[in-house]
């Protein structure tokens, strides 16, 4: 390859204990770094921003931008249409509640989480980049926190952007400011919680395997199967008019946990059959506990997952 290296390789064996580091005569071309070393917090932030950008394909190949950008577009398109309809038909309210939007478009959110969680963690495992990270000033918790926060933020952008579109549209259509602002704020809160929950679950699944394809399939399967199961059992309960059972069943799938939570705490209208949200204060509290418990458990599981990774 390059000539200079070949030349030095042929040089005579080293004299014992060569030039001291301060001997600048030999340092032709090499400049020592005297600037700041920003340490652990900065390194964690760098990993966060790299992972967040990576979730939208930024800093990666053109090909990897395609899917996340399409999903972002698909996520925002209905909001744009709704806004247009509201403005041009002079409706006096938006066609959908802010808190309902994510529930309607849960398939898009699931696809995004399923494609980007493995992108974020399986790649590091597969190409064995993780040991390089741990040879830097960061600790395990920094890696897990940065990856978790990055995917949650990416999902929040995905779920909050259409809400912003709806809100701006609502104001343009001169709908009631106070009412719209309250609805928008509640929508953001639930979008944030949804993002944290979805990010945690999909990262835990993706971090199990270095195979990206498996990760994608497994994340989709968990979200879709759990939702299908909850919905169909809720359907059975509906036919038997057991509305309280419907309200309880929601704790068994991620999106219905969000639905139950926002129904009880944010005054949203539930998307469950018969709009049967949590039947009691106890049930509402259980939704809260499940939501935060699962998110915390996911963080714990990720910490465990990387306990052994070290340098091996």
């Amino acid at each position: 390859m390059s000539q200079p290296d070949a030349a030095t390789a042929a040089a005579p064996p080293p004299e014992p204990s060569a030039a001291p580091p301060t001997d600048v005569i030999h340092n032709i071309g090499y400049r020592a770094y005297e600037g700041p070393r920003l340490g652990r917090g900065y390194a964690r932030l760098s990993l966060f921003s790299q992972s967040l950008r990576g979730a939208y394909g930024l800093g990666r190949s053109a090909k990897s931008k395609v899917l996340p950008m399409i999903l972002l577009g698909v996520m925002c398109a209905p909001a744009l249409i709704m806004v247009a309809v509201t403005i041009f038909t002079h409706m006096n309210r938006l066609p959908v509640q802010y808190t309902r939007y994510a529930v309607l478009l849960q398939a898009v959110i699931t696809l995004f989480a399923a494609s980007q969680a493995p992108q974020s963690v399986s790649r590091d495992l597969r190409f064995k980049t993780t040991p390089l990270y741990f040879s830097r000033p960061i600790e395990r918790i920094d890696y897990v926190a940065a990856k978790y926060a990055a995917l949650a933020t990416a999902l929040f952008l995905l779920t909050a952007l259409p809400l912003v579109i709806l809100y701006v549209g609502a104001l343009l259509a001169k709908l009631g400011f106070a009412h719209q602002t309250a609805g928008f704020a509640k929508g953001l809160v639930s979008a944030l919680l949804l993002s944290v929950l979805f990010a945690g679950i999909s990262l835990v699944i993706a971090a199990v395997t270095p195979r990206r394809g498996f990760g994608v399939a497994a994340v989709i399967a968990v979200f879709v199967i759990s939702y299908a199961a909850v919905s169909s059992v809720q359907g059975v309960a509906m036919s038997q008019e057991r509305y309280d059972v419907i309200g309880w069943l929601g704790v068994f799938s991620p999106i219905t946990v969000i639905d139950g939570f926002q129904t009880w705490f944010l005054g949203a209208t539930s998307a469950f059959p018969h709009a049967a949200g949590p039947p009691s204060a106890v049930a509402g509290l259980v939704y809260l506990l499940v939501l935060f418990g699962v998110a915390a458990a996911c963080f714990g599981l990720l910490m465990r997952r990387y306990r052994k990774v070290g340098l091996s």
Binding site: Y33, Q50, G59, R123, F127, P131, Y133, R136, P137
Partner: peptide, 24 residues
């Protein structure tokens, strides 16, 4: 062992690793 992601350029990768070591 190998530790390089194949779809990233050397420049991008090393810049990222430099930042991970605390360089602005």
């Amino acid at each position: 062992h190998d530790c390089l992601p194949p779809d990233v350029s050397a420049t991008e990768f090393v810049v990222h690793m430099a930042r991970m070591s605390g360089l602005p």
